[in-house]
Design a protein around this nucleic acid. Structure first.
Lengths: 333, 333
DNA sequence: CAGACATATTGAAACGTTTCCAAATGTGTG
DNA sequence: CACACATTTGGAAACGTTTCAATATGTCTG
């Protein structure tokens, strides 16, 4: 069943059928009705390959996900998937490893799939500086802020990570904690860098000298890494009362480690996380955290991309507000 | 840059270039080398639209995910995504709502995208009976068993849900529990039905009469539903000592509810889950559960599909072994 | 070295659209 | 009613491949 069959059946030419299918003006109401009726009756589906061949482009949007361990990402991909479900676009997912160059890979995939739009989940500035100018289609960086990166076709949607982290640490400080450990972060991750900055700022503004900052233990955003990092911290001689974990998953891993060490949260150590993942509200103790509006970040990213695609919208760099969800894992001392 | 340019540049015809690109026999070593060299030099990428137009099919595989709340699914999609990353196939994800007819939707999407293979995550028998015979491409049902559904081109990979559930409940029984509640399950979900069956079987074989079976509270697989279901159970006059949750997420929700009610797990109530999600190992108390090898289920599903696609492999129905991970949420009484 | 094969290559048609130009039809004006 | 103009329609080329029949080239055998 092709456009040709519809044409034959309705007595119109294929040109007219094509115009009807594409909502072109200059086609009579009568033709439109006759043709649509035949289309519906046969359940005719346009051959996308032929269309794309002719129009040179596709309706593919690529989402490149940088990092295969972050448990937040698959859920975000789901949300984005569901956004595009209602549209004519096809979303194609590509996961790239932590160490890989997400920008180069993005470029390749976009070329292969003839993509017209790009979303990048995670990623870091250096790789963008190296290769992003070769990507010519509208793109949105999700989760990181790219306001000062200076790319013409790159938008970004994120929370203000520095501010969020600062708020978290301030919260601990106000609760009387002074020796606040930083848990997590991998080199080359922009998010880590920003959040770490917030941790430093908060302490500075509270008058703590750089040399008196709490200890740092790196690790990627996972339960396991959080557990291991905390274990290491507990074994060391630093006596911390508060822990700021760069991600909720790490916070949970950390609490698990504390509990395994026979200590209690928040009795012996207070822990605050970052992200606001659902489990946080059900964990025991319930996790105090900086909650990003993951859903809003996703939706807004999609909206901006579509706007760039369909209305030649300008690129934008938006912060989505975060909130501090006070629950049970932080205690005043 | 098209095949034609490559042809012009190398002095061969486009037919020859095409054959080189498709690894056809009957092309000289010399031609192959000259052409590949030019291809690489220009970073030439074949126009998939043109190819698909000509060959009538695509290299698209669809994964239809039935259910947008199950937190396990996005992670499984990620795993499957990563499997196909190494192949020439393109995986296209489609989420369908809990109440929707996943089979009809799958058929539509396959048609639209000219898919050659199909994966379905979740789903229930009735919908398959209604419409699966209209799907003509190889398909694999992931997570459910379809051995006795009788479809020619449908394989399936799952754990033996009935056995798994039975094992879980037997474990509680052996620990001395007699009044064992069943938490979770939605009508029309095959997984729920199977697991519930296991719960019944275990009690029967233990000599418990049907009328003495523990209480059931339904709900979908989510923290929230688990929490609410457990709350309801606690408010009722049934005094259960053991809870079998049909999913880890529900188990965690339940534990949270128990803890909020001032009771302890496993002190007052023992809880066993099902799935083996990562958080289970870090939760407090650490969750005793039936662990499915999610990764293996995913990988095996992909392997079978590819085998059907490339080697005309026969359909298969495989069970992937599960294990009972004993941790801390169940106590002997 | 001629003939018979096997192997390698060419050329052209076809896939199902979109889009542009030209032709046909309709509508309003003086 | 003739003309200009707007609207609608038809026809054909073009997009970049694959594939098949036909042709060219090479190789072996007696």
């Amino acid at each position: 069943m092709t456009i040709k069959d519809i044409a034959k059946e309705t007595g119109y030419s294929i040109g007219t059928v094509s115009r009807v299918l594409n909502n072109h003006p200059n086609v009579s109401e009568k033709a439109r009705k006759t043709i649509m009726e035949a289309v519906d009756r046969h359940g005719f589906i346009l051959n996308v390959s032929a269309k794309n061949l002719k129009t040179v482009q596709s309706e593919n949007i690529i989402i490149v996900v940088k990092g295969t361990f972050n448990e937040l990402f698959p859920v975000m991909v789901q949300r984005i998937q569901m956004y595009f479900r209602e549209t004519r676009y096809t979303l194609i997912t590509e996961y790239v490893d932590e160490e890989a160059d997400e920008v180069t890979r993005a470029r390749q995939v976009c070329l292969e799939k003839k993509a017209i739009g790009l979303l990048i989940l995670g990623g870091n500035k250096e790789n963008f500086e190296k290769g992003f100018d070769r990507i010519k289609i509208p793109a949105v960086l999700v989760t990181n802020h790219a306001g000062d990166w200076g790319f013409e076709n790159l938008s970004s949607v994120s929370t203000d990570d520095t501010e969020g982290a600062k708020k978290a640490v301030e919260f601990l400080l106000k609760k009387g904690h002074r020796n606040i450990a930083l848990l997590g972060g991998t080199v080359g991750s922009d998010t880590s860098t920003q959040r770490r900055l917030g941790w430093e700022k908060a302490q500075e503004e509270f008058g703590i000298k750089k040399k008196d900052f709490g200890p740092c233990v790196g690790g990627r955003y996972s339960f396991e890494a959080g557990y291991e990092a905390m274990k290491k911290l507990l074994k060391s001689d630093k006596k911390v009362t508060g822990v700021f974990a760069l991600a909720d998953v790490m916070a949970i891993g950390a609490i698990s480690a504390i509990s395994d060490a026979g200590l209690s949260v928040p009795g012996d150590v207070s822990v605050i996380g970052y992200d606001g993942i659902p489990i946080g509200a059900y964990f025991c103790p319930k996790l105090t955290t900086i909650r990003q509006s993951i859903d809003k970040i996703c939706d807004r990213s999609c909206e901006i991309l579509v706007d760039c695609l369909e209305n030649e919208g300008k690129t934008r760099h938006e912060f989505i507000p975060f909130t501090l969800d006070e629950r049970q894992s932080v205690k005043k001392i």
